[in-house]
Design a protein around this nucleic acid. Structure first.
Lengths: 146, 146
DNA sequence: GTCATTTAGTTGCATTTGTAACACTTGCTA
DNA sequence: TAGCAAGTGTTACAAATGCAACTAAATGAC
């Protein structure tokens, strides 16, 4: 009678599910901000945040950093350009890609949203407490870097 | 000179971003399974997993449990029905909604995918270690329940 | 140098999703 | 009981996404 009783699968303990819920809940709230104020999608906001923090780079570099599909990236960059948040400049020595950088308007938007994001993040971390925040960050990095 | 230096926003420390990445990475891998084997979307798989574990219930009940939008839910239910995984039955006393439950094929699919899911989850937890897994679960629940 | 391979990015099409409007039922209230 | 608000679900249309095919440029083998 030592049957290795296989318990029924329970979604509520499935890590991918829990991660998705948490991601949805936390992102949804903040999405309202960049959507309402600058009409941006999540991908656009991320592209901008990358350029804002790390300076000019090409689309494919951002792809590698963010794991975003190149098609999605292409369209996000186009939209940001059309809305005047970034410009593309030729790279000498390689005409396949272009260097992307924020315009003045883009920098302004980054500054505004960045401040909001810091506040929002702060709120989350306060709810979790410092230990849990640290811990969560570490665990998530472990999952991502795979 | 005691300026409260406001540091620049860094996406790499933004919890919603990290959560999204982790959710994407972990879900993506498992998605390949239910997509390839049963042609299901993520939402469909979740609906089925709920019905499989918790038994018959209405669409709106699943909505409340999973935080899925009712439109998305409606379409997932329809697809599952068309593919023979669930049936709808009238509820007496309330003709607004119908009771959903898995068919034999649905139960079979749930059993198959459930086993795979348990294995997959196990793999993740082993990579994190028991303490971190527990901790992660608790923190995520804290974020979700808000 | 020439040709195959890789890298960067775009476009087209099918699917999925989000939002608003709608239909229908039930419950409440006056 | 008449009428109005709230709950459940569907539909229509626009926007976003995924995937495959494509153009163009750089790299590498020979």
């Amino acid at each position: 009678m030592k049957s290795k009783q296989k318990q029924n699968f329970d979604l509520d303990f499935f890590l991918p599910y829990l991660l998705n819920q948490a991601a949805e809940v936390t992102s949804q709230n903040f999405q309202a901000v960049y959507k309402a104020e600058f009409g941006m999608t999540r991908t656009q906001w991320r592209v901008m945040a990358n350029l804002g923090k790390k300076g000019a780079m090409t689309a494919s570099e951002i792809c590698r950093l963010t794991f975003v599909e190149k098609t999605k990236m292409s369209r996000a960059v186009q939209a940001l350009q059309e809305n005047g948040f970034l410009v593309r400049e030729a790279i000498e020595g390689d005409r396949r890609s272009e260097m992307l950088s924020l315009t003045a308007a883009g920098k302004m938007a980054f500054k505004t949203l960045g401040t909001r994001a810091i506040d929002y993040d702060q709120g989350l971390r306060e709810r979790l407490g410092p230990a849990a925040s640290q811990s969560l960050e570490k665990i998530l990095r472990l999952l991502i870097g795979s």
